[in-house]
Simulated scan of single mutants.
Amino acid sequence: MRPVRALSRGTTLIAGLCGYGVSMAMMVRAGLGLDPWDVFHQGLSLLTGMTIGTASALVGVAVLVAWIPLRNRPGVGTVANVAVIAITVDLALAVIPAPASLPARAAMLVAAVVLNAVSTVLYIGAGLGPGPRDGLMTGLVIRTGGSVRLVRTVIEVTVLAVGWLLGGTVGVGTVVYAFGIGPLVGLFVRLIPDRLVAVSGWAGVRPVRITADDGKSEQPTHTGIAGS
């Protein structure tokens, strides 16, 4: 990998992870419901007194341990995912106030889901390694032979239920995220310029193109798991 390209991918990764952390904080402040994993993180933080960022990081490390029997290999992006998102969400929560009115809360929720989708495209598109939770899902799909839909549903329903029992916020925002994140990611992965994302990050959905590095055509591999 050429130094300039490596720097570009690293910048894209960090931008995506920071945006993801900010979107998490915005959903928390909106108070209308979180995505399944963040319901779990929030519930864990309420139970233990730790920050949501710390809870997210500890869960990320625990999930990485679960990678061992799945024989997954973490990348730079995997480690950065744990650290950068945890730090960013706590910093964002410290400066983002909770909206007073319901329309403002709804607007913040929508903005958070959109930012989350853009950030997901960027950090996965950097092609420097999946996040711990994404890797858990894909590893289980490979090892069990189950479908992406089934494995992801089982994982997210489980963490959602546990998080809700611990006091995490489940609401309309949870539903909006569940039904909105997929289409939004699909939209932004096609709108964001090629130079900002690597073929390896979105191999399943981006069209064939010529790379600037070697002039060779790169064919996408339809794995069916890109963007999960």
Score class of each variant (00 low, 15 high):
148 V>T: 12
162 V>H: 04
1 M>K: 13
95 V>I: 15
208 V>K: 12
2 R>N: 15
1 M>L: 14
30 A>Q: 07
140 L>T: 01
154 V>P: 03
64 L>R: 02
161 A>V: 14
89 V>H: 00
179 F>L: 15
51 T>R: 09
91 L>P: 03
14 I>H: 02
183 P>Q: 10
9 R>W: 11
41 H>V: 06
187 L>R: 09
207 P>G: 08
91 L>D: 03
18 C>Q: 03
48 T>D: 05
11 T>V: 15
167 G>R: 04
31 G>Q: 06
175 V>R: 01
228 S>M: 13
72 N>A: 13
100 A>S: 14
77 G>Q: 08
39 V>K: 05
50 M>Y: 07
217 S>T: 14
106 A>K: 00
170 V>I: 11
54 T>M: 13
78 T>M: 03
228 S>D: 04
173 G>K: 00
163 G>P: 02
189 V>S: 10
225 I>S: 09
37 W>S: 12
164 W>S: 12
47 L>P: 00
211 T>S: 15
164 W>Q: 04
106 A>L: 15
69 P>W: 11
123 Y>S: 04
220 P>L: 10
22 V>M: 05
84 V>Y: 09
92 A>P: 09
86 A>S: 14
218 E>A: 11
185 V>I: 15
131 G>I: 06
155 I>L: 15
227 G>K: 09
47 L>S: 14
170 V>Y: 02
216 K>W: 08
4 V>E: 15
75 G>V: 12
228 S>Q: 14
76 V>R: 09
60 G>E: 06
148 V>W: 09
58 L>D: 10
196 L>M: 13
49 G>L: 07
138 T>W: 02
163 G>H: 01
75 G>N: 11
218 E>W: 13
56 S>F: 13
189 V>M: 12
209 R>W: 11
45 S>Y: 09
121 V>S: 07
97 P>E: 11
224 G>L: 11
144 T>H: 04
9 R>C: 00
10 G>T: 10
147 S>D: 01
27 M>V: 00
178 A>K: 02
39 V>G: 07
210 I>Y: 08
10 G>K: 08
218 E>Y: 14
76 V>K: 02
164 W>P: 00
141 V>K: 08
63 V>A: 06
106 A>E: 02
102 L>A: 11
155 I>E: 08
197 V>Y: 04
190 R>I: 01
191 L>R: 13
214 D>V: 01
26 M>C: 12
160 L>M: 13
37 W>V: 14
7 L>W: 10
107 A>S: 10
141 V>Y: 07
88 T>A: 08
216 K>L: 15
90 D>H: 05
120 T>N: 11
135 G>M: 03
199 V>G: 10
128 L>D: 06
136 L>Y: 05
9 R>Y: 11
196 L>T: 00
6 A>Q: 12
10 G>E: 07
75 G>F: 12
145 G>M: 07
25 A>N: 12
175 V>H: 01
12 T>Y: 03
224 G>M: 12
109 L>V: 02
18 C>N: 01
179 F>I: 15
68 I>H: 04
142 I>Y: 04
18 C>L: 12
3 P>K: 10
167 G>I: 04
79 V>A: 14
228 S>E: 13
13 L>I: 09
102 L>F: 13
36 P>S: 01
172 V>C: 00
123 Y>E: 06
43 G>Y: 02
110 V>E: 02
91 L>C: 11
159 V>G: 03
96 I>V: 12
71 R>E: 10
62 A>W: 06
159 V>M: 04
